[in-house]
Design a protein around this nucleic acid. Structure first.
Lengths: 216, 216
DNA sequence: CCGGATCCCCAGGGATACTG
DNA sequence: CAGTATCCCTGGGGATCCGG
């Protein structure tokens, strides 16, 4: 990217990561951990292969990622974030938090993936009652599956299915994530296709970050 | 900007503010408050007038800024951030914090302005001793002048000169800001041209955010 | 199938000039 | 002062091809 030529730390940040796709590549490496070229390409629907290749080279030169040759069982190169690259997580969280306001817009052409279903609650939702016993919430949306572990004041997530969840949420992405991130309430979520199975009251354990009161 | 077409809040944020210059326009409106077209153009050295015009139109459509006709004494249109636009401040702070690591690189072609000298300490430095009496630090660098008010656990700043500062820092931008933001220590700062006048010990009141110990 | 490299086309950005 | 108009050129998107 062409430099802004300004002695300002925001401008210098954008000199490094302001190019198209760059921050989304960092996002995928944060969410998925070390990735192969193809993993990244799959995690970034719409990116052209040549552009991904170019970006990876630039990011390696900027020392935000490193490329390592994986041991025999994999026998391919893995891209992983360096300390510098990992340090972008707070910035990506802040950008993502701001973008929650647009998550209610339905855009049928949008791609959707399981790791995006998983990361949003983990990043943008907290457990309001650290003393209470942990609960497990299963999320199913557009063929993607994720599990939320809520307990000890934290919300963590993983891709996949839980054996015995306290609550199952099912519905279109903007219903499930809209409810969890607090941009809509459960009545609105139900109206746009959310179905629940299990103990709905565990939702009171969740609170969107950056808000004082209430719960989804 | 062409949409990423991904149902992910980071991608949707970048759909809105990912275009070149957009976040820097938000930065200027955050730092300067409501601005005229020319104020923005001056605050964004390097931007082309047509591009600024285009971005302002897009930002208004996205409801991140509003354009108001100022009353008679000014008699021009003022651009100001909406609530939505103001809400980007945490994201800009996070991006700027990450970018501090590049502030030691000297790039003679970089532009530099007083408002950038002022905002960095206010955003990225805290007062370690809220109980102690307030101190005033004058910053002079490359013809830009700013004043830091350190007290009550906070650091605030303004453009201009102070009547009776406790300390005056003078030197090239990467010396003054590098010292204040903690990327270099006072010895290194002195070696690259920092001069001080007054009570150097007030620097112990300052601590870069995101660090446990030490001071510039 | 993986990990790219190459080529062509077009939208978006940059510089300058001009106008109400 | 506050933009608009114009032209040029780079950088991104899409498809295809190639070596391992």
């Amino acid at each position: 990217m062409r430099s802004y030529d300004q002695y300002c730390s925001i401008a210098r940040t954008l000199d490094v990561v302001g190019d198209r796709w760059t921050l989304l590549i960092i996002r995928e490496l944060l969410l998925q951990g070390p990735c192969r070229f193809t993993d990244l390409k799959n995690g970034l629907p719409g990116i052209a292969a040549n552009l991904l290749s170019t970006r990876l080279r630039e990011l390696e030169q900027a020392e935000l990622i490193s490329r390592d040759d994986a041991p025999p069982p994999i026998a391919t190169t893995l891209y992983r974030l360096t300390e510098t690259g990992l340090a972008l997580e707070p910035a990506l969280k802040a950008l993502g938090l701001w973008g929650l306001r647009y998550m209610t817009d339905v855009r049928p052409e949008d791609a959707f993936q399981a790791q995006w279903l998983a990361y949003a609650p983990a990043w943008f939702v907290t457990d309001v009652d650290p003393e209470a016993p942990p609960v497990i919430i299963q999320l199913n949306s557009s063929g993607a599956h994720a599990v939320l572990d809520v307990g000890a004041g934290r919300v963590s997530s993983r891709i996949g299915a839980a054996a015995d969840p306290d609550l199952v949420l099912d519905g279109p992405p903007h219903a499930v994530l809209g409810l969890l991130t607090g941009v809509i309430d459960i009545e609105q979520a139900t109206q746009i296709g959310l179905t629940t199975l299990g103990r709905r009251e565990v939702l009171t354990r969740l609170r969107p970050v950056g808000r004082e009161t209430g719960s989804p």
